[in-house]
Every structure is written in structure tokens, then in C-alpha cells.
Computed example of a mutant assay.
Amino acid sequence: MRRFHKMHGLGNDFVVLDARAQPLAMTAERARLLADRHRGIGCDQLILLEPVEGATARMRIFNPDGGEVEACGNATRCVATLLGDGATIETRGGRLEARLTGDGATISMGAPRFDWDAIPLAYPLDTAALPVAWEGLAPVRPPMAVNMGNPHIVFFVPDCDAVDLGAVGPAIETDPLFPARINVNIATITARDAIRLRVWERGAGATLACGTGACATAVAAIRAGLCDPVLSVTLPGGTLRLAWHAGGPVQMTGPARYVFGGEIDLEALAP
């Protein structure tokens, strides 16, 4: 039997397994079964904590399709509340610093990257204004690509709620332009300090919230001169506060909720 924690950040929900003291082998199949809402515990992402030299913990992130990804902002806030104030969390996307707040955490998410091969793209393009288009989207400016530890493309549209995310999301995620696939952010700017956002996450689909997506969207808006350096991003699950100054790390502040804990027999999981 293994102890697990069920948590969420703005409705983006996670199963957290702490393997720092007792090692746990994680496979794609096991991650898929744990994330299955009918045959497992159910979550948007499975989080595995492991020991690592020089940090409080290593955080590994698995999508419901079993694929391991580099970063997850909402999960980082949840993990920070488990690890305690001042935690340093190692991810495949970089090392993140956490500070607890009243109902969650502020995470220093690292500096965004913009080079085409850091996104990555399949070939060189101007990531600040990608000369690409997809049916079903009529953005107010060319989309921007941002790496926030994981790859994102950001579209600014007149009304993000009017976009058929279930149609355009998977088409863009799997486009050959993105060899590692990509997270798709559809955003509407409502004020100099406010954005509405919907996100299609690679390997997970539409989620109630995406922390790295909010970071990437804020960076894109600030970089394009559309928003101020401190702003709010509102997703279907709630609102995050973001701050970014060019050349520095993105600061993300938002809630984290502990839902319940329990034990599971991993060997009993079956398709």
C-alpha cells in the first residue's frame, strides 16, 4: 500500500506520491491507471516526489496519457504546501523556488525562453510573431511561442470563450511544427492588468487551470506591450497573479488546496 495526497490548484487536480523515503518505480502504464477517473484515483497530472541533492525534492510530472512532462505551475504550488515554506523543487524544466502565502504559494517559475530551438520548433521562426495560422482561430496578432519549462503557444483573440478549444487544441498540439507537441493558450485581454485564458494542455486536454500557461500568456502579453508587468490571469477554475520584468523570472501566486489523503494498492491497478 502507498500513501497518496489528492490536491488541486484552481481545479487543476493532482495525485501526489511521496517517494523520497521509499522509492517507487513509475511507468507510463501505472501513471495512466492512477490518473484514470474510473479505474484509478483520477487526476489531471500524477506527481511523484523523489530525493535529489541540493533541493528539497525532485518533482516528476506525468500526464493522463502516461507521458512525463517538464513543468506544472499549479502542481508546484500544491507540492510547495506539502514541503513547507522556502522549498526548492527540482523539475525537468528547471529548479523552482517556493514561498508559502495565506492560501497557497508564490513560485519563482524561472525565466521564459524564446529561442526557436528552446520551444522547440521544427525549424527557425520568429517566436514573437509566428507566421502560422489554423482554421477556427482569428487572433488579433500573430501567435507567440514561449517556453516556461514546457512549450506554449499563445493566441490573443477577441473572445476566448467563443473558440472551439476541443477542435483547435488537439490540431495545434500535434502539428509537426512542434516536435515535442505544445500547450495551446487562447487568451483575451480585458484590461492592462487582466487577461481571460483557456488552455489545451498537451497530453491532458482542456483543464480548469494551467499555471505555466498563465505564465506564458502573461509573458506574451507583457512582451508585446499589451499588458503591464503585474497582472491577473483568470482561467475557468479561478485567478492567478503574475509578475514579470524582461530578463527576470516569472513570479506566480495562487491557491493550493488539499482535498483528501488515502492509501492505494498499486499492484491491484488494472485496465
Rank of each mutant, 00 (worst) to 15 (best):
N150W: 07
G73M: 09
N74S: 11
I119L: 10
T106A: 11
G149Q: 05
P112K: 08
V132Q: 00
D117M: 02
A122T: 12
V140S: 14
P112M: 08
R141S: 13
D115F: 00
T106L: 07
G93V: 02
E135Y: 03
G136I: 05
T101Y: 05
R141E: 10
A118M: 08
T76S: 15
E97W: 06
P139A: 10
V157C: 02
R141P: 00
G93K: 10
W134R: 02
D85P: 03
N147C: 11
I153M: 03
A133H: 14
E135F: 00
R99Q: 14
C78Q: 01
Y123R: 15
W116M: 08
T106Y: 01
F156N: 07
P158K: 13
L82D: 04
D103P: 00
P158I: 11
C78I: 03
G136W: 03
I119R: 02
A105W: 03
A105L: 08
A129V: 13
R92D: 14
P124Y: 08
W134P: 03
D126M: 01
A145H: 09
G136N: 10
I153N: 01
I89A: 14
A75M: 13
H152L: 10
L125H: 08
G149L: 05
G84M: 14
R113S: 12
G136R: 08
I89V: 15
V146S: 02
P142N: 09
R113H: 14
L130G: 00
T88R: 15
C72N: 14
F155L: 04
G110E: 09
D115E: 15
R95D: 02
A129M: 05
A145K: 09
L83R: 13
P112V: 06
I153C: 04
T88Y: 01
I153P: 00
R77E: 03
A98S: 15
A138N: 11
A87H: 09
G94P: 00
M148E: 14
G94D: 09
P143S: 09
P120Q: 11
V140T: 14
L137V: 02
A133D: 11
M148G: 04
G102S: 14
L121D: 13
A111E: 12
G110K: 01
A133P: 04
E135G: 09
E90H: 15
A129E: 11
L137S: 04
G136T: 05
I119Y: 03
